[in-house]
């Protein structure tokens, strides 16, 4: 059997939604078990004294990247059929900044807010309400934002294509970047834990 399973017709849209549910529940469960249902834990990365979120998320990215890379090399996954979100760099930079501000102010990102809401936290309920209202506001304001939405189109591009490097080299560089990031994060945590001992 070859992946992506959906593209090769192993299942249709309806069964795809069931897989989305199972994966979503699994993702939420492990987020919560990792302590990411707590806004205090999440915002600690902005105070640089607990970079668990950075380390966990980067580990997930590297794991997924190595998994897809080796599965592709083994002939089990056709990377050309894996969906890639098209790049619109202007709205993605604006949206990324807005999300970052929302993350610092509210203490959650969209995924962790839902995981936290499932545990009954009221701050997460307020945050998720904000997401719903923001989404509705964006939909209503879309005619005015249409220009921004389509600005900076670069198509569906990958890092190897953008950097003109072989896939294997990019994978190696990202792994190196991750290792460097983890070492740097450990050093930052030690330093800022001394500066803010009351937070640890």
């Amino acid at each position: 059997m070859h992946a992506p399973f959906f593209k090769f017709g192993a299942f249709g849209d309806e069964v795809g939604l069931i897989w989305a549910f199972v994966l979503g529940i699994g993702f939420g469960f492990f987020l919560e078990r990792a302590g990411f249902g707590s806004a205090k834990k999440l915002v600690s990365q902005f105070y640089l004294d607990d970079l668990a979120v950075f380390k966990v998320m980067f580990t997930a990215i590297v794991t997924a990247m190595l998994g897809t890379f080796f599965l592709s090399r083994a002939g089990l996954l056709d990377l050309a059929l894996v969906y890639r979100t098209p790049t619109f760099w202007v709205p993605q930079v604006v949206g990324g900044l807005l999300l970052g501000i929302g993350f610092v102010v509210g203490g959650y990102c969209p995924g962790t807010s839902v995981a936290s809401l499932a545990t009954g936290r009221l701050d997460a309920a307020a945050y998720v309400s904000g997401i719903v209202l923001g989404t509705a506001g964006f939909a209503l304001a879309f005619p005015a934002l249409r220009g921004l939405f389509h600005a900076g189109s670069l198509g569906a591009r990958s890092l190897p294509e953008a950097l003109h490097l072989p896939v294997g080299v990019v994978v190696f560089l990202v792994v190196l970047m991750a290792v460097g990031g983890f070492v740097g994060a450990q050093a930052l945590e030690r330093r800022f834990a001394r500066i803010h001992p009351e937070r640890s």
């Binding site: 299942f11 249709g12 309806e14 069964v15 939604l17 069931i18």
Partner: peptide, 11 residues
């Protein structure tokens, strides 16, 4: 099982 009510039933 694969029709239009599959997702709503199982999810």
């Amino acid at each position: 099982l694969r029709g239009p009510l599959t997702a709503i039933f199982w999810v």
